[in-house]
Design a protein around this nucleic acid. Structure first.
Lengths: 348, 348
DNA sequence: ATACAGCACTGAATCGATTCAGAAGGGCAG
DNA sequence: CTGCCCTTCTGAATCGATTCAGTGCTGTAT
């Protein structure tokens, strides 16, 4: 068995407290004794205070939990999520804090258990949709919480987000300005368990996921202003936030009669999937959201939001809580980035 | 103060053990009592057993540590590292195990402290270079350890790697076969603290980092077989594993008189940087290593190694230790992927 | 009726440290 | 010489659970 602090104390002939101090509060004992203790520890193969025991007694862990509502392994395939995580990591690094990546089971009960079992001092939740039950579990634990969506944040939570609606409005206004009137909007999981493909959505405000809701509403705003009513807009559901899912969902729409002249996607990954599917439809305008690295290469018109910065701020909000709770609510600026994937509507 | 298990016990009028059982071993008490306990817990706002206390008592944590020897935030910029991490995440997910990403301070002493303070059941170390002291800290703690480099693994450690030397030999043989005789090899931190640019390295075996050493040696093998002695080969040091670092390091070499006709890099990221720098040198053949996504787009000839698979196996080695220690040493296959970045030497 | 098994629950020990009030001893001023 | 402060170290309480050897009790086979 690995030696414990007590064993070291016995070996040196001092009290347990003193050995503890040798590690955690060097000023509490003479340098000579400390050296002797550390020496004995080395000789015995004592690896230093047990992190778990220390955390229990101290009441904090030195780690923050990072949650992606989708599967963890999947989060790594989303470039925006990766950059967000990198930002969180940067700040955590400065604070000497570790990042606990908690895989969330699909099953709600087990997801809750996963949250309950995470040894962390707080959570950063990268919101993608229906994370309400997970957020509830975190609040029940009384842990500080930072989310990436204002709508998902409770009164006591901090958040760092963007004005989804305004951002979406800006791309949509650009597209409408190019003359597009027959448009399709593409989003991941518009409604829970909806099949891939066109979908009837009475009102953009009916979309349950706050981010999707905000973006769809913004799209609707701009087109309404251009004289296109919501009912004239096709909403397409993708079964997952991936290129392939987007391609599969949009293909039938493009192949139908009276296809849209523009597709506005709720993420770059989806937009890239649309471009994949649009091979035979060169006239199609496509827009994305986020401005990931691939977007630039693909010439995708999109809305840029600062990814790493979002992560950094989220972590900072958690690790350096602002004195004034009002400062815990951050909205980041976004930019419309116009590239080659959008153009004037092609009259045929 | 948050209620504890004891508070719930008092409220219901049962012993602490029974409440504990209600959570962890439902078969140890009657369903009725269990319901009553869980109910009282909910009423009191008891969030379930404290993860830290539970870990202490149980003796395990339910998390594995993942270490990148470079800075954590930097690890996310390396596509290969991200895919490796995704693989680790997949397996961890299946095991209901969390991933603790530990930021490693540059400072050796603090790096050791970071390892000592990590509450985990084992470590996966993504080796990039001089991690020996970190590995030592892990072994001192008596924790199981999986590395990605056979050379870095101690007798008790598991590893999942590739045959670096053979893999490197395969690309180099390809390049030599195309007739290239004036070649440069590019690697990150060939020697500690070496400046960016050409470097004198008496023997490839002198490179301190095992991975770099293996690759350089493999390159040397192939060229030696083609009649090119090591002394005729230029070794170029990059100050970091990034495109920009590669560009900066190789530019003067390409601009010099008697520039190489081929540059073999020790990673794709470096190779892409060489391509960036090679704009004015269209005749240059360039090879990378790893086959990340960008490599395909850039038409980079490289050696493919399975990234996610490496991560999955590393995690599996940690979470499902093989009965026979011999099965803890895995070497994965690699493939030479020839694309357009290499071609026959251009006689000028 | 007797013994034995099994169920439901309790008590006490334990995991490995931190913390803080206080004790012992030494040095210095009055 | 006495009193007081300071430094150095100790003891005991504490963090919040898990675990396992029992203790009653009920029910069943003999």
């Amino acid at each position: 068995m690995k030696p414990t602090l007590q064993d070291v104390a016995n070996a040196v002939g001092v009290s347990r407290s003193t050995v503890s101090n040798a590690y955690s509060r060097p000023d509490q004992l003479s340098a000579a004794l400390r050296a002797k203790i550390l020496d004995a520890a080395r000789r015995l193969g004592y690896p230093g205070p047990d992190p778990t025991a220390r955390s229990l007694r101290r009441g904090f862990v030195g780690a923050i939990g990072v949650l992606f509502t989708s599967e963890l392994s999947y989060a790594f395939t989303d470039p925006f999520a990766v950059r967000f995580l990198a930002g969180v990591g940067q700040v955590a690094e400065q604070h000497g804090t570790s990042l606990l990546l908690v895989p969330l089971p699909r099953d709600r009960e087990r997801a809750r258990a996963a949250v309950d079992n995470a040894a962390v001092d707080g959570f950063c939740v990268y919101c993608v949709g229906d994370e309400e039950h997970v957020l509830g579990a975190i609040r029940d634990r009384g842990l500080p919480l930072v989310t990436t969506a204002p709508e998902a944040a409770g009164p006591a939570d901090r958040f760092v987000g963007i004005d989804e609606r305004a951002a979406a409005r800006s791309v949509a206004a650009h597209v409408a300005g190019l003359g597009h009137r027959r448009v399709a909007l593409l989003a991941d999981t518009v409604l829970p368990d909806a099949p891939a493909g066109p979908l009837r959505l009475a009102d953009p405000a009916d979309a349950p996921h706050p981010t999707t809701r905000g973006r769809l509403t913004g799209f609707a705003d701009a087109f309404a202003a251009a004289g296109v009513p919501w009912s004239a807009i096709t909403v397409v559901n993708a079964a997952g936030n991936s290129r392939a899912a987007a391609t599969a969902a949009i293909a039938p729409v493009l192949a139908g009669d009276d296809p849209p002249t523009a597709v506005l996607a709720c993420s770059d990954v989806l937009a890239l999937g649309v471009l994949d599917a649009a091979g035979p439809h060169p006239g199609l305008s496509v827009t994305g959201f986020d401005d990931v690295a691939e977007a630039a290469e693909a010439g995708l018109t999109t809305v840029r939001q600062p990814a790493e910065e979002k992560g950094r701020l989220a972590a900072a909000l958690l690790l350096e809580p602002p004195a004034d709770p009002a400062d815990g609510h951050l909205l980041l600026p976004t930019d419309l980035v116009v590239r080659t994937s959008t153009g004037p509507v092609h009259r045929s």
